[in-house]
Design a binder for these strands. Structure first.
Lengths: 385, 385
DNA sequence: CACTCTTGGAGAAACGTATCTCCAAGGGCT
DNA sequence: AGCCCTTGGAGATACGTTTCTCCAAGAGTG
């Protein structure tokens, strides 16, 4: 059998190989043509069931596995989706650092696998060495900074890009984000209703969309209700800096009586800082932070958190991306991205479609004052919602 | 320029394409052959620097990006490494669930990228749909169960496999693991020295190597020192089950006065259970658990943890794998895997090379008794180390 | 001058698949 | 009988690289 396969297969110069069986070997062993094998295995063409099953059996017997590389080259599709992970500093990658990224990545992986795609973890740095060597059908970009050159180049080269986080100034196929403004305003309202008179913010120094939008929403709210902004910013990727910033915030002469921390560890940081200054939570200080971690359910006291629902985001991002990938070529055979090149698309058809997803405020003890100090004159005028 | 490129390129039937520039286009535009372009861009062949830089410039101008699929097909190398993630139940994946996996995956990703490879996240289930469609140069398998069919098939098909966790009964190229036996014995000794008379174990019901080796080490130690084993097992992937098992363990009539929990959340679980039963830690109950999380540094009291140093593991696993990948073809051109097919290799050259890596015990308050109940008659005979 | 060696580079053969085109044979219909 | 339509399948091409082989022209050397 094997000898026959080797003999009848047309291998011109190189005499004999003991490599894995190729489609040619299967064809020879089954006594049919390559076309028939391909059609039989892929369920295409018009073949009687008998031929189909016979070919399949032979392929199974030879342990035939189609070459993914050849298939990719031929079809132009690899079944691979890039997942950029933000890389602070040099080597460490944040896709497991924060619970948000971890959950999001997990949901994205799951959604992709469910549709037959696999995720490739890639750094956000634009080193071509790695990016250029991988055939990607599309890419998920997590929270791209303004004018990300990597995103621009990907989009320019025709790879669909869907971002988690509204992109600042770079073109993407689509984007998904939370309604950060609504979330922050909701928290500020919540704190006001709990009796807060002066709400502080613990924010970051980076320019990512989340930080920017949240901070802007805070400042806008302050302007609207007439409160002087009280905030401290620190590099969010530095775990030690958060504690210092929390300390700074509570050490200010205009110390806030409520604080919202934008980053996951801020709850712990603020709690520790409050303890250090002898402030009781929630009696002297109301606390809310944005986190996906459930440790805040068991802290003393439990801390109110804002969940961005990263799993929903991850799932949505991947599904949007795969829709774009499969919509391009599968339908009419018309390549949309080519009909509307990036430069025309950005200017012509307007901004890329974005989806805003709701957040969820998990109210715990840290933001509920048992004996509210005041029930009149809430900081925010009741007329405005 | 572009017109000339299109004209001189030999595109037979299909008239004109607006696709991405290929190597042919670059060759035509630069007035050289395809060979020269390939050599110039890849730094091979004998070319004067002038030609090299000219070709590079033309390629840059045309925005040429080599097709990863074609390169993979030709060279047989994709630059892709599979990372299997254990998938308990259906969809959820554990590569971010536990801090150990998260850290390990992060380190592995980083190490791979540093050597020009990217990681593809793949489920441990042997669904061919995804696995078969991806050209992998090798695979990292996290803690394969005994006789994992996936690993066997991968290995059989010639893909190098390196596992994190000593493989039970399936052939791998190499493996890396902690010295779990030594780690457990070290902890039991540590607890004994702190005054423990009866040490309990919180373990899992699954058959992975870690659980098995650790449990066996515990049982062996018990037999040696003459203590009756006191342990409870539960399905480790169920977060709720841990708390129940911890409760069961402390509710037993032969309640231990020290417990080692094999899984990350066990520290919290045990602490809560101890509180429920009015047991003070460490006065009434000594506690150690295996965890990579630093939350145990701030619990009340801080809990002694065993760190498996997952980053070291991840880095080592990936480096071993890439060594195997590049050693096969790069050196003499001799394909080792073909010279020694799996069946000969397993029987002939003995078990695959394994590396044992040390763990680290981070001693905190939970395992140090302030006033030891007894200083005489430590449970373990001093003669044996 | 005849020769070898080096330099610079061109040609063409794979890699393994998917798919487009085309063909032969048979069967039914007018 | 002539024609068309369906079935079953073969041939050939293209996907875009890398790389092996080979060649021409100069440059040194006896």
């Amino acid at each position: 059998m094997t000898a026959a396969a080797n003999q009848s297969g047309r291998r011109p110069t190189t005499s004999r190989r003991l490599e894995r069986a190729g489609i040619r070997d299967v064809a020879a062993a089954a006594g049919v043509s390559i076309t028939t094998v391909s059609d039989a295995l892929n369920g295409k063409g018009r073949l009687p069931d008998e031929t189909r099953s016979r070919v399949r059996e032979v392929a199974e017997r030879l342990g035939y596995r189609p070459s993914a590389a050849a298939r990719t080259l031929r079809t132009g599709r690899s079944g691979l989706i890039g997942l950029t992970v933000t890389t602070y500093g040099e080597e460490p990658f944040t896709f497991t650092e924060f619970a948000y990224f971890a959950e999001m990545a997990r949901a994205a992986t799951s959604a992709a696998l469910g549709r037959g795609y696999a995720l490739v973890v890639l750094p956000a740095s634009s080193r071509h060495d790695v990016w250029g060597n991988i055939a990607l059908d599309g890419t998920v970009v997590i929270d791209p900074p303004d004018q990300d050159p990597l995103v621009s180049e990907l989009y320019r080269s025709g790879v669909p890009v869907v971002s988690d986080g509204k992109p600042g100034n770079c073109p993407v196929t689509a984007w998904v984000d939370n309604d950060h403004e609504a979330a922050v305003l909701g928290i500020l309202d919540h704190l006001s209703e709990a009796g807060a008179r002066r709400i502080g913010l613990l924010t970051g120094t980076s320019t990512d969309t989340y930080t920017r939008l949240s901070t802007e929403a805070y400042l806008g709210w302050c302007a609207k209700v007439g409160q002087e902004p009280v905030y401290e910013a620190y590099p969010a990727h530095d775990p030690a800096a958060g504690a210092v910033a929390a300390d700074r915030l509570l050490a200010r002469p205009d110390r806030p009586d409520a604080v919202y921390g934008l980053f996951d560890p801020n709850g712990t940081d603020l709690l520790a800082a409050a303890r250090r200054y002898g402030l009781r939570v929630p009696d002297d200080l109301l606390l809310v932070c944005c986190s996906e971690s459930d440790v805040y359910a068991t802290t003393e006291p439990p801390i109110t958190t804002l969940s961005l629902k990263p799993r929903r985001i991850g799932t949505t991002v991947v599904n949007l991306l795969i829709d774009a990938i499969e919509g391009v070529d599968s339908g009419t055979g018309v390549d949309i991205a080519r009909l509307f090149p990036p430069r025309f698309r950005t200017a012509g058809t307007g901004p890329p479609p974005g989806t805003l997803m709701p957040t969820e405020l998990i109210v715990r003890a840290s933001s509920q004052r048992r004996s509210p100090r005041t029930t009149v004159n809430p900081p925010r005028p009741p007329g405005e919602v």
